[in-house]
């Protein structure tokens, strides 16, 4: 945990500021380190260790070895320091009372990357990041990032929204995503992520949705080579730390984390568009049928009801985000 540990080697005489013991923060990541988010984690880790002169160590446990995002959040919210930090999707906080975080994953909210980053660098962002802390959940967000827009991909060729009608689409089991799929005229289907490849292969489901990078890294193009770039949600990510770990840090150390967060956030912004374009080119070269969506308005219209009911509690705040484009 973030318990203090004696340094591995006794410091040489003369130096050693004894009041700053070494601290290790256990940091959970669901994805492998070579993904966009994994690289963002590493950038954050390296910056923290650089700025602290190695006094704060970030122990990244990647590839989901500590569990899914919900498992990790359950461990963090349970307290005690099993996991101190984690990179999560902002969406994951929805089932922990994250009313504000929820707004970030409302379908067709962000029209482009700029729009999201306008939000992520606005005065509103810190308020959103602190929501779980203010809710009394015992965690706080440090900074935002993104893993690209999420798009639908299907087994059968598609060219327009209407082609999704009647298809069985696998989405996460939360009500907003399910409502969105229904709004598009398809039927949401429950399939565990581990069974998704086989389910696409055999035809239990006709399609699913992921950010482009995940679509490729999970080998889904092999079984569902049709990608429609509807960008229904932007995969907003954030790095969270438990209040327990935060409060153990000195103010200086807290500043280091914030500073490194700012750096990692910018790093993420820089690489995600680049990486996504690269992956998209690769996919096209591999023969994936990539369909551009010229006009997103009909999609927005189709899921209007879901958007309205999901933002009912926070209408003004939601409008503020929409207006940031």
């Amino acid at each position: 945990g973030c318990g203090t540990k004696p340094p591995a080697e006794p410091p040489a005489q003369g130096e050693a500021p004894a009041e700053q013991p070494e601290i290790t923060l256990v940091y959970a990541e669901v994805n492998p380190l070579d993904t966009i988010v994994g690289q963002t984690d590493t950038a954050f880790k390296e910056k923290v260790e650089e700025l602290s002169g190695g006094k704060i160590k970030i122990d990244i446990q990647a590839s989901g070895v500590l569990g899914s995002e919900n498992d990790v959040l359950d461990a963090m919210l349970g307290g005690g320091g099993t996991i101190d930090m984690s990179r999560i999707s902002a969406f994951a906080l929805t089932s922990y009372g994250g009313e504000k975080s929820k707004l970030l994953s409302i379908p067709y909210t962000f029209v482009n990357r700029e729009h999201f980053w306008n939000f992520a660098t606005s005065d509103l962002a810190p308020e959103f990041l602190l929501e779980p802390h203010e809710n009394g959940s015992g965690v706080r967000g440090l900074f935002y990032g993104e893993e690209g827009f999420r798009h639908f991909f299907t087994v059968k060729p598609i060219s327009k929204m209407e082609d999704l009608k009647g298809m069985k689409l696998r989405v996460s089991n939360d009500p907003v995503m399910n409502g969105m799929v229904q709004g598009l005229g398809a039927s949401p289907t429950v399939v565990a992520f581990g069974e998704l490849y086989s389910a696409l292969q055999t035809g239990v489901v006709d399609g699913a949705e992921q950010p482009i990078a995940n679509y490729k890294s999970n080998a889904f193009p092999e079984v569902a080579p049709n990608l429609i770039l509807d960008g229904h949600t932007l995969g907003a990510i954030q790095v969270v730390i438990t209040d327990e770990a935060w409060n153990k840090l000195t103010e200086e150390q807290q500043n280091i984390l914030m500073e490194a967060g700012k750096y990692a956030s910018e790093f993420n912004r820089k690489i995600s568009e680049e990486a996504e374009n690269k992956v998209l080119e690769q996919l096209k070269a591999e023969g994936v049928n990539v369909v551009e969506v010229e006009d997103i308005t009909p999609w927005q219209e189709a899921v209007k009801g879901v958007i309205e009911s999901a933002t009912a509690n926070n209408k003004e705040l939601y409008k503020k985000i929409v207006d940031m484009k």
Binding site: D74, L77, S95, Y96, G97, N173
Partner: peptide, 19 residues
Amino acid sequence: YAVLLGSRGSYVSMPGLSR
């Protein structure tokens, strides 16, 4: 743990049902 998580979270598919 059940009480703590119950006060802080819900099921993903059923926002009305406590964790």
